[in-house]
Design a protein around this nucleic acid. Structure first.
Lengths: 251, 251
DNA sequence: CGCCCGGTTGACTTGGATCAAAGACCGTGG
DNA sequence: CCACGGTCTTTGATCCAAGTCAACCGGGCG
């Protein structure tokens, strides 16, 4: 058994509406502060930024941004999972990334969103009006530095993802994805576990790693049959971590 | 016939060695200043940065950085084409990008290079010691802003590339690549032409768009047979630009 | 209970990979 | 000036991994 992903994600229990009404209070002792861009700010600055922020909840499937549409907000994900994707004219979808708690949506600061974003599961985020955030950013070079670091990290992640999509076989794609999600969860939660939460559907995974749902399902089944993973509700357990790492490294 | 790509790329004729010996002089009236990160600097700042720079030439195939190795220089490409790639354990190669004049190599500012980089053709670059550049950068928030913009742009490019690798058919990949290179050359050269220089080999193109050399060659041949492109030395001419754009948009 | 939706599985097809051979295009040296 | 060897490109024949299409399963919920 694994804990429902929310246990990992909610930084305040839902029975504390105070946190929602007074964001600044929540900001000060936010679990995610060290992993999010807020970590670049000292207390006074964070209090100021908190004035600009508004916490919002998003139901599963609720849309945050639409590709090409103007959007005047940027987000700091607090809880849940957001998927970032491109919708192709023929209806297919390429997911370019999953945003987890601590991730920033709107790095490009463009007037128009380069991608669609919606919530995979019920999620929460700090929202900032882009103009206000930009103005604040212009006064805080160390925040810009942090944002730059985030952009570079996203860029590098995208480039590595690209290597995967360009070259890897189905099994390697799936295993890389599992290791990738494991790494990302452990970066948030601190401790790393062989149980990887997968809040997204099989279709989402397929659209992320460039396969079809059938192939993802088949591959997972085969991996479980070979006792390399165990499929659990909302996730998988990696039974042979060294072997999996070797498969991914080996091509 | 098309001009050899060097005509487009060299911002100073090779018979002016003065530019090589006195970089600062060259920097002041560098054609690439507006398109490169130097565009963020006023004359005095540029003069200061020029002190830190050293112009270097790279022969075709000469290596600039090796994936995982430490590298204490960053580069501003002046002329030629640099390929950025990941080498897989089985010897295959995924090219994550081509750097053209005005592009910056080393955005991540990490001690160790995330990718290999080498010259596709004879190239030139401004080199900066990373530490010195970092120190300069720390004093110039507008340069950081410019660098951030470049990182965001790279990130967005990588994400779009990713959509292509995840979903597109061979013909769409090739056509997207041609349009992409056309757009990039025109961003440098100012004017856009239906003739697209391709300094890289077929193998490079294949490794960039996630196909094999045979498929790239076949696809190009088929496109030429259908009178949609014309293959010329070191490039192609797009005969049916609107049709090509429609094919790419249509999936 | 029965519907619905997500996931799994099977049978068949196919686009692009692989393997292999033959051109084309150099620069080099006789 | 041409013959030679190397590299890059094109082309053909065959194969296979993953896609497609479709049936089926199973859990949650009205």
């Amino acid at each position: 058994m694994m804990p429902p992903s929310d246990a990992l994600l909610l930084d305040a229990p839902p029975d504390l509406p105070a946190a929602l009404l007074a964001p600044q209070a929540g900001c000060m002792n936010c679990d995610l502060r060290p992993v999010s861009i807020c970590g670049a700010l000292v207390d006074e600055e964070l209090a100021e930024l908190a004035q600009l922020s508004e916490r919002r909840s998003f139901a599963a499937r609720e849309v945050l941004t639409i590709q090409g549409d103007r959007s005047d907000v940027v987000f700091n994900v607090l809880a849940g999972t957001i998927r970032l994707y491109s919708l192709l004219p023929d209806g297919r979808r390429q997911i370019v990334g999953f945003l987890l708690p601590g991730d920033f949506l709107g790095l490009s600061m463009e007037e128009r969103s380069p991608f669609c974003a919606d919530a995979v599961v019920d999620s929460r985020a700090c929202c900032f009006r882009r103009a206000g955030f930009q103005e604040f950013l212009d006064r805080k070079p160390h925040l810009l530095r942090r944002l730059h670091r985030a952009a570079v990290q996203e860029m590098t992640m995208a480039q590595h993802h690209l290597v995967l999509l360009g070259k890897a076989r189905a099994e390697v794609r799936v295993l890389s994805f599992l290791l990738h999600m494991r790494r990302r969860w452990s970066a948030i939660g601190g401790r790393s576990s062989v149980t990887v939460p997968l809040p997204m559907s099989r279709q989402d995974i397929a659209d992320y790693i460039g396969l079809t749902i059938s192939t993802v399902s088949r591959t997972l089944t085969a991996l479980e049959r070979d006792r390399r993973i165990l499929i659990v509700p909302d996730g998988v357990r990696l039974l042979d971590l060294p072997g999996i790492e070797a498969s991914v490294a080996g091509g």
